[in-house]
Every structure is written in C-alpha cells, then in structure tokens.
Amino acid sequence: MTTNEPTRRLLDAARRGDAEGVRAALADGAPVEARDGELRSPLLLASLGDHVDAARVLVEAGADPDAQDSRQDSAWLVTGVTGSVAMMRVLLPAGPDLTLRNRFGGVALIPASERGHVEYVRALLDETGIAVDHVNDLGWTALLEAVILGDGGRAHEEVVELLLAAGATPDLPDADGVTPLAHAERRGFDGIAALLRAAGQQD
C-alpha cells in the first residue's frame, strides 16, 4: 500500500467527502486506485459515506466501481446496502459489473431488497439489467431475502411488488426447497403472501 502524502490526502478527502480535496490530491499525483489498510479504494470510501460529489470526481478520473476491499465490498455493491440512488447513478457511467458478488455471493439487488430500500430497488430495476433471480451463497434470491430478512411492512411489500413486476420467479425456493410464499405464511406476512399468491396464479 502506498503511503505517500498525496495518497493519504486522497484517502482522507474521499472518506470525508471533500470533493475539492480529492481533486487536489489527484492533481498532486495520488493514484486514483490507492488503497487504505483494509484495501478500500477512495471511491469505495466515498460510497460508504454517500459522498456523491467526491465520488463524481473520482469516477471522472477513471476510478473503478468494482474494486473490492478485504471484505469484498466495492463502491457499487455498497450502494445496495446504503440504498443511495444518487450514488448508484454517479457510478453507472463507470460501467459497474452487475454480476459482481459480495462476500455472501449476492449482487447489489439482494441487500437492497433485504433492507427495504424501495426507491433504490425501483431505480436499479428500471435503469440496469441486473439479474432479478440471482441466487446467493445462502441459496436466497432478492425476493427470498425481502421475505426472510424483511419485517413484512409496507416497504418490503413494495420491494416484493417491484421484484415481481420485474420478472422475479415467485415460487423459486431456497436451498431447503421452501418457497417465498411458504416463508411469508410462516412469518404472518399476509400482504406479501397475497402478492405472491397472485403472482403464482399468473404464472
């Protein structure tokens, strides 16, 4: 890991969201793909803090949205966790790999669905070709995560609606053969169960 002064300033500026500091450090020779002790790039640090202006400077300088750290996080994957539509849109022109997997084998859509990030899920499905039925290492799709790890409230109902409208397979089971509908019924998520039953009847 390079630890010269411009590199330190770049990493610190990205972490703080100081867009002008990022620009100045780059102008002074800091590598756009510098890494900190946890292998986080400046763009990943900006994404973690939802520092959109700093991220824009880095993207314009050619930063890689797919550069992964020691936890397999990347600037792109982190948007699925934060639910930041603005950051997602800043990163899209950099051509992120929509198939890039996090440490759980999931794509950005899965953590976003788990967390009930409705507007992010909507934008991601509308503006990219991300695989709606991607299965992670746990054997779960975005639809399954929205049910299994969601709270059954309105946000997760909306996520389920969006996923189904985007073509998610309503009866694709988990690794144990349990369907999203069965999980919803077990958890007493009546609204989600109704959506899944209706989608299953349309199939």
Rank of each mutant, 00 (worst) to 15 (best):
T3D: 09
R8Y: 02
R9Q: 10
L10D: 02
L10Y: 00
L11C: 07
D12P: 00
A14Q: 06
E20Q: 11
V22D: 07
V22Q: 05
A25T: 08
A34L: 07
G37V: 01
G37D: 12
L45K: 04
L45N: 12
A46E: 14
S47H: 04
L48C: 06
V52T: 11
V52E: 08
A54Y: 05
A55Y: 00
V59A: 03
E60Q: 13
D66I: 10
A67K: 03
S70H: 13
D73H: 10
S74F: 11
S74H: 11
A75I: 10
W76F: 15
T82K: 06
S84G: 12
M88L: 15
V90A: 07
L92H: 05
L92Q: 12
P93E: 10
A94T: 11
T99M: 01
L100S: 12
R101L: 14
F104V: 09
G105T: 09
G106S: 10
L109W: 11
I110P: 04
R115T: 08
G116W: 02
G116S: 11
L124T: 13
L124S: 07
L125K: 10
D126A: 15
E127W: 07
I130N: 08
A131W: 09
D133Y: 01
H134K: 09
W140I: 00
W140H: 15
T141L: 02
A142K: 06
E145D: 15
I148R: 08
G152V: 01
G153S: 15
R154S: 09
H156C: 09
V159P: 05
L162N: 05
L163K: 04
L163Y: 06
L164P: 08
L164V: 05
A168G: 01
P173A: 06
P180G: 05
P180L: 06
A182N: 03
G191M: 07
I192Q: 14
A193D: 13
R197C: 10
R197A: 08
A198R: 09
Q202A: 15
D203V: 13
